[in-house]
Design a binder for these strands. Structure first.
Lengths: 129, 129
DNA sequence: CTTTGTGCAAAGCCTTTGCAATTTT
DNA sequence: AAAATTGCAAAGGCTTTGCACAAAG
């Protein structure tokens, strides 16, 4: 079974371009709206299909929100986490080498391989207090 | 605003009982089926409502799967995280005092108050390799 | 020209909600 | 009797899918 060829279409390019301009997670629907807003209309179904494709190729990170909605973000070179304000949503990117190391150690101890993790920190930011 | 009284009904008891016999995560629909299977029929909507109630009171952990479906499991007294097998779902509870401390420190540095966090570790468990 | 991708609308799922009937206190 | 809870079915929201048409190679 050979690799099926991927065609570079206007739509796929548009989705990739938008992702490139964003630093944080956005839902498929938000991305769809952003595209429409800048005159690069792409069908919602296509947005979903493209994001899923990118996720399969590990080119975007996927995060599941409390309500089950998926959010996507292009993988950044450096791995980091988010400190999010629970009332206004202001986000700060934080890094935690120690945490990265810890998760690998813990997983190793239990025989789990190919480790990955998700970590989000929530709090009330200065402006919202 | 006073606490509204919670009534202990057959349905709520049944859901709690099932959760008590389980060690791992189950979806609301699975719990609903388990109940039906043991003659303790409870409406699906009620199962959802009860689980949400339990989650609000921190009596069950909620986990969002890759497909957006939520899974529930009664949680143990101490705060902990989960090491989940991405293929079979086998879960190990892990504690990380250092991580807890780190999140508080990071949040403090950025002026975020009333900190909480979520952390999930994913990997391929021994049995799935 | 053949194959892959897109759009639209319909369909699928999981979950939530309105409301009358029922149960608990 | 009053108030909370249940069940059912309808409604919601996100995501996937069938299919005819358009675009890419």
């Amino acid at each position: 079974m050979a690799e099926q060829p991927l065609r570079l279409t206007r739509q796929r390019q548009a989705v990739a371009d938008v992702l490139a301009t964003l630093d944080d997670f956005r839902s498929a629907q938000e991305i769809h709206e952003l595209l429409a807003g800048q005159g690069q209309a792409v069908g919602l179904a296509t947005v979903y299909r493209t994001l899923q494709l990118l996720a399969d190729h590990d080119e975007v990170d996927v995060l599941r929100g409390r309500d089950g909605e998926a959010s996507y973000r292009r993988c950044s070179a450096t791995h980091h986490h988010h400190l999010v304000c629970r009332s206004c949503g202001a986000t700060v990117e934080v890094e935690g080498p120690a945490v990265e190391q810890w998760t690998r150690t813990v997983a190793d101890q239990h025989g789990y391989a190919d480790v990955s993790h998700t970590l989000e920190i929530f709090g009330d930011c200065p402006r919202c207090r």
